[in-house]
């Protein structure tokens, strides 16, 4: 694999834009942004993150590879779809945000301690195991993500909700012991492996 992380980008030339177009889901749309700022003004998390979609897109054109890919902004996207609905140029902003996050993650330069990134990892590992989400295991691993003490504290805080979910059948009390997986687990794993191969080949990753 070429070390893309070490490549230097020419400012305001097309270098990084081309990389994004080739490797990021819906990245092909970035050049259509007209910098109107409607997305930035529409995002409910606008204050919470450092770079609005508008800025992220401008940074891509400005060749700020490092800053974009290590940004935690796209990890903060809640997929509310406000921006997509309003963008006058009809960019699939939400998808680009997730695409960028995924690309940064695959390159290994996404912010390590970003909680959404960590949750996404837990979720993925949980679901691919059996093909179905095990809610109990997922919640517990989430609560204990930041260590044992924190985990106990969070678990206690969440007891009420947990009981409620049990009562309504949303949580399997025996979840730690058994999992309702899908029938053809190995088939799923094979399919996922193949999909990753195809994607990696396309993105030039190994």
């Amino acid at each position: 694999m070429r070390d893309k992380n070490a490549e230097t980008m020419q400012k305001y030339h097309n270098d990084f834009l081309r990389e994004v177009e080739a490797n990021v889901e819906e990245g092909d749309w970035v050049h259509m942004c007209m910098q109107c700022g409607v997305c930035a003004g529409s995002c409910p998390l606008g204050d919470a993150w450092e770079h609005s979609p508008q800025k992220i897109f401008m940074m891509i054109r400005a060749g700020k590879r490092e800053e974009v890919l290590t940004s935690d902004s796209m990890w903060m996207c809640t997929s509310c779809y406000n921006c997509i609905v309003r963008c006058p140029r009809e960019l699939p902003i939400t998808h680009i945000m997730h695409g960028l996050a995924n690309y940064a993650h695959r390159l290994g330069i996404a912010p390590k301690m970003n909680p959404t990134r960590r949750f996404a990892k837990l979720f993925w590992n949980n679901i691919v195991k059996t093909g179905r989400v095990n809610e109990l295991k997922l919640s517990i691993s989430l609560y204990f993500m930041d260590g044992f003490t924190n985990g106990v504290k969070t678990s206690l805080e969440m007891t009420g909700m947990g009981l409620g979910m049990l009562k309504t059948g949303r949580l399997d009390a025996m979840g730690l012991l058994r999992s309702h997986g899908i029938k053809d687990k190995s088939g799923l794993h094979k399919a996922l492996k193949k999909a990753r191969e195809i994607e990696d080949a396309r993105k030039g990753l190994s």
Binding site: Y12, L17, H31
Partner: peptide, 13 residues
């Protein structure tokens, strides 16, 4: 303008 963006002309404010 849109056509120029499609052709990947970079616009920067």
């Amino acid at each position: 303008y849109r056509s120029a963006q499609k052709k990947r002309v970079i616009f920067t404010k």
